[in-house]
């Protein structure tokens, strides 16, 4: 119930400057339209930039929502540039390295943002990722230790993101925080929903006919996704991950359930629950409003432009080793 009541307060805002006090009345006049096939029409382009941090700031204890007054005050502080720990600015935070979007004529304060009065994206009284189980901690520590000191030995030692195999913003479940390339396009056809991430053109074509997952012998970085409609909500169930998919340290037994719905015309509500008995002692869930954005989604190609950069990283390491050898002599 809190979930649904809070929907009324989740509103897309065009820009931080445009933040106004949100009305308390639920958007009762709006019902999600239908596609010609009769399924709820979630289609469109949405941006997942948000000001809400994933985990609740510790000082807030079990407080799950801001009051209207607190929320307005918080927004005001953000507009004045005083970045409180309550807001994980993501999109709006000034960036000085590499992707200074203002260089390209983008005004980050005009980014499309969706906002909620939640104090954290993770729902529930704790508002934080549950502690990692000792075995998971050990598994992750061992992997990190194995790579330590060998980070530049070969391509295998580089992160998946740098290798253009799995980018942060294409990973599922989708977490906000990206300064760019944070669009998601939804297209519905008969019996299928397509989820296209702007980041590295990552695409999931999800059958909604109730079929089971592929055989356990098939493992995929993005897992195997099957879906169904639950009223006006698309529910997507994903398993068959690889042990390299590692969402916040998870293993290959990760089980992800995502729910997509449209509480109002301008918002896609993205909710997910993850469970992995080999990583956390209990499932945890988050809720992320996404704001309707202007398309189209342009092509984002990573690997095709990665050769020079990647060769430079590894060649640099080899040149350094040679230089060190000479010094040793």
């Amino acid at each position: 119930m809190t979930t649904h009541r809070s929907l009324a307060s989740i509103t897309a805002i065009g820009a931080m400057i445009a933040v106004t006090a949100w009305g308390q009345a639920p958007a009762k006049s709006w019902t999600v339209p239908r596609t010609p096939d009769g399924t709820p029409d979630l289609q469109g382009v949405y941006a997942n930039a948000t000001l809400t941090p994933l985990e609740r700031p510790k000082g807030l204890g079990a407080k799950e929502f801001y009051t209207d007054q607190e929320f307005a005050a918080l927004m005001k502080r953000i507009q004045q540039g005083s970045v409180p720990e309550e807001a994980d600015l993501g999109n709006a935070a000034p960036q000085d390295v590499r992707y200074d979007l203002s260089l390209y004529g983008f005004d980050v304060t005009k980014a499309t943002l969706a906002s909620s009065k939640r104090t954290s994206l993770i729902v529930g009284p704790e508002g934080r990722v549950p502690p990692m189980l000792p075995e998971a901690r050990q598994r992750n520590a061992e992997r990190a230790a194995k790579n330590k000191g060998h980070e530049f030995d070969s391509y295998e030692n580089r992160p998946l993101q740098e290798r253009c195999i799995l980018m942060a913003q294409e990973r599922i479940p989708m977490l906000p925080g990206a300064a760019d390339n944070n669009l998601l396009q939804i297209v519905e056809g008969t019996g299928y929903v397509v989820l296209l991430h702007e980041m590295d053109h990552s695409t999931r074509v999800i059958p909604t006919d109730g079929r089971p997952h592929v055989s356990q012998s098939i493992r995929e970085y993005q897992g195997d996704s099957v879906g169904h409609w639950d009223g006006n909500t698309l529910v997507v169930d994903t398993t068959n991950f690889t042990d390299l998919s590692a969402f916040r340290g998870s293993g290959e037994k990760l089980h992800l359930v995502e729910r997509f719905s449209r509480p109002d015309e301008k918002t896609l509500l993205y909710q997910f629950t993850v469970e992995d008995p080999a990583t956390w002692d209990k499932p945890w869930s988050a809720e992320i409003p996404m704001a309707k954005a202007k398309g189209p989604v342009y092509e984002w190609a990573c690997h095709e432009g990665n050769l020079d950069e990647f060769v430079t990283i590894l060649r640099g390491a080899r040149v350094e080793e040679e230089a060190e050898k000479k010094v040793a002599k």
Binding site: T35, P36, Q43, V187, G189, L196, V205
Partner: peptide
């Protein structure tokens, strides 16, 4: 795969 909607056709 071809997925047809009214506004767009996706080819994946």
């Amino acid at each position: 795969q071809i997925v047809q909607s009214r506004e767009n056709i996706m080819m994946a």
